[in-house]
Design a protein around this nucleic acid. Structure first.
Length: 614
DNA sequence: CCTCTCACG
DNA sequence: ACGTACGTGAGAGGT
């Protein structure tokens, strides 16, 4: 047995690293005893973060309580492996994990322990921490990482070992990326680090439970978040089919386009199309006047500035108000091709698993409002189907996308009890149509509706005329008229904003959402409470729908939640029936206000829902 | 590591 | 007193 001692919060703790069968039997005895006392802290060390990439390995599995950690070298196989699998399969043994979804998926994929079996036995300290304070560290919160939480609740010096391990990697000629796979399994710092993490997790649990108790956060909210985490982990494990051949062609096409326009930009003296300083200098040399500045005082050279010089709107439609500047055109095209290639095509290929699938990681509590985020696919272009075309439904299936209808506005109508909004919704009127008629009169066009949608949403979140006009492209006079009309028609919104801000000030600048979620406000932008309340409740409306989907047997079809939408893969012959089922799961009343959804049936590729013909 | 830019809801 | 859009992930440049 290798044994390490360390001090945490004044206590000497022990990290045991079993080396033979006798050591493992001691571990077994400890585990039997520890599981009777309470949940066992659990963690894994692996070769990296992309669980589904070829060659990925599970290296160690750690177990522990507040004073003792056991680092089991799973990679050695044999008894090391079977003992871990046995312990994780014992009925009734509970575990506490920090960021459980990651370890669930690692153990599911690489140790044969299904997430369906492990999730019901798990408490996730990251979820508990997010329910105490959902803010990231840079937003003024504690953050929800194990280290910052341990520093606050357990021991201020707890995070120091992290830096030690990075310097060990460096001293071995390894980096932050290669270190996890390359370091020797018996390296002392590696094992100490691995052991400390479970001890910190074990110590964090009672602190966070006490914190939640004192803040009055109900246990059902925590249980609900654990269900959502499990459901999203199932979707992440499934992943989506990548059209590899198409993606490779796309990569080549975008490379050629980027090359062509980078060359053109170079003729005007711009060596690097991503350097705003170079572009500004070259444009000014051509006689263009650049008036806009960024917050830090630099010349602003963004898409809006370049589009104006290229005589196109933000959707690249020709404006015909000036002669297009050829450098602006070249920079726009080169930057877009380059970004789309690296951020989408190449990233898809690099993240593809051995079966040709990609697995977007879902963070179920990413935003301060509780909104989820997904890596890899959250922000694929929607105006052009080229990128989404690379992602496919299952063989013999098609994509169905079911969207809520104006969910944030319906939530607002429910929360703030907005009379005319509720009447319009109940009467089956389209809220954005209604806004458009307020601004443009009954003869409004589809383009008017689109502008009105932006104005309507921006307005309720506190946007002013300038911002709303800039964001939506609607003329400023129209925006002013819309704002005046809004305040007349929906006076309850402003009143609710004031009331919610007062409530928050009375409880340490925290607004408590409809389901009891704590939403901290920034003192100097308390008006954001309207956005927080709507965004957060809309997130939980989607969360409730996801529980409904699992109940209806649709979880295996679900692929990705996207704020107000569920993307699903369904058998081509039964698409209509599935579409109705998804709509049903996303339809219910919120304080008497109907929440409704509409399914769109596409083809095999995700791009088919955005205009692609496949 | 911070800033800027750009993609989405 | 008045007015303020909100929330993400990701790549590249520059300090």
């Amino acid at each position: 047995m290798q044994t390490y001692r360390h001090t945490i919060a004044g206590d000497v703790i022990t990290v045991n690293v079993p080396e033979d069968l006798d050591d493992l039997m001691q571990f077994e005895d400890w585990a039997a005893e520890a599981s009777r006392r309470g949940p066992i802290a659990l963690d894994t060390e692996t070769t990296g973060l992309s669980i589904f990439s070829p060659g990925y390995r599970l290296r160690t599995v750690q177990f522990g309580d507040a004073h003792t950690a056991w680092v089991i070298h799973y990679e050695r196989g044999g008894y090391f492996r079977t003992l871990v699998q046995n312990l994780l399969s014992v009925p009734g043994t509970r575990f506490v994990i920090h960021n459980a979804a990651f370890d669930w998926l690692v153990l599911d994929k690489h140790a044969g322990i299904t997430l369906e079996s492990l999730a019901p036995k798990t408490t996730d300290t990251k979820i508990l921490a997010a329910l105490c304070d959902p803010r990231q560290a840079k937003e003024g919160g504690t953050g929800t990482g194990l280290k910052p939480l341990s520093a606050r609740f357990v021991d201020p010096s707890a995070p120091d070992t992290q830096g030690d391990l990075t310097s060990v990697f460096n001293s071995l000629g390894l980096t932050k990326e290669t270190g996890w796979a390359g370091i020797r399994l018996d390296h002392p710092t590696y094992n100490l680090y691995a052991g400390l993490d479970v001890i910190l997790t074990a110590r964090l649990l009672p602190c966070l439970i006490a914190e939640l108790e004192s803040l009055g956060v109900r246990n059902v909210l925590s249980q609900y978040e654990h269900e959502i985490a499990r459901i999203c982990a199932v979707m992440q494990r499934r992943g989506m089919v990548l059209d590899e051949e198409y993606t490779r062609e796309l990569d080549a096409t975008l490379a050629a386009e980027a090359y062509e326009y980078t060359e053109k930009a170079a003729r005007y003296g711009v060596e690097n199309v991503n350097s705003t300083a170079q572009i500004a200098e070259a444009l000014e040399g051509m006689g263009e006047v650049l008036r806009e500045r960024t917050a830090s005082g630099a010349v602003k050279v963004d898409k809006a500035v370049l589009c104006a010089l290229a005589d196109v709107d933000l959707q690249w439609n020709r404006l015909d108000v000036r002669k297009p500047n050829p450098l602006a055109v070249a920079v726009l095209r080169s930057k877009r091709a380059g970004k789309w290639r690296t951020t989408y095509a190449q990233r898809f290929l690099s993240m593809m698993d051995a079966g040709g699938r990609i697995h977007p990681g879902i963070n179920t509590l990413a935003a301060r409002t509780g909104r989820m985020s997904a890596d890899l696919v959250q922000t694929l272009p929607s105006g052009d189907a080229m990128i989404r075309r690379a992602i496919l439904a299952e063989e013999g299936e098609v994509f169905v996308s079911t969207d809520f209808k104006a969910v944030e506005l319906r939530v607002l109508a429910a929360l703030a009890d907005v009379k005319r909004m509720k009447e319009a919704i109940t009467a089956g009127e389209d809220l954005h149509d209604y806004t458009a008629s307020l601004i443009y009169g009954p003869q409004f066009t589809p383009k008017h509706r689109k502008l009105s949608k932006g104005v309507g949403l921006g307005k309720v979140y506190g946007g002013g005329p300038d911002t709303l006009s800039r964001q939506t492209g609607a003329p400023i006079e129209d925006v002013r008229r819309a704002i005046a009309a809004y305040d007349r028609v929906y006076p309850e919104v402003k009143r609710a904003s004031g009331r919610w801000q007062r409530e928050a000030r009375g409880s340490g600048m925290v607004y408590i959402s409809a389901i009891g979620r704590r939403l901290p406000l920034d003192r100097d932008r308390a008006y954001a409470v309207v956005n927080y309340a709507c965004q957060s409740t809309a997130r939980d409306v989607l969360g409730q729908s996801m529980l409904n989907m699992e109940e209806a047997g649709l979880l295996d079809n679900c692929r990705l939640p996207i704020h107000d939408e569920m993307l699903a893969s369904v058998p081509v012959g039964e698409a209509k029936e599935y579409a109705r089922e998804f709509e049903k799961c996303m339809t219910f009343a919120l304080r008497g206000v109907p929440i409704e959804a509409e399914a769109e049936i596409g083809g095999r590729s995700w791009g088919s829902l955005y205009g692609a013909d496949f």
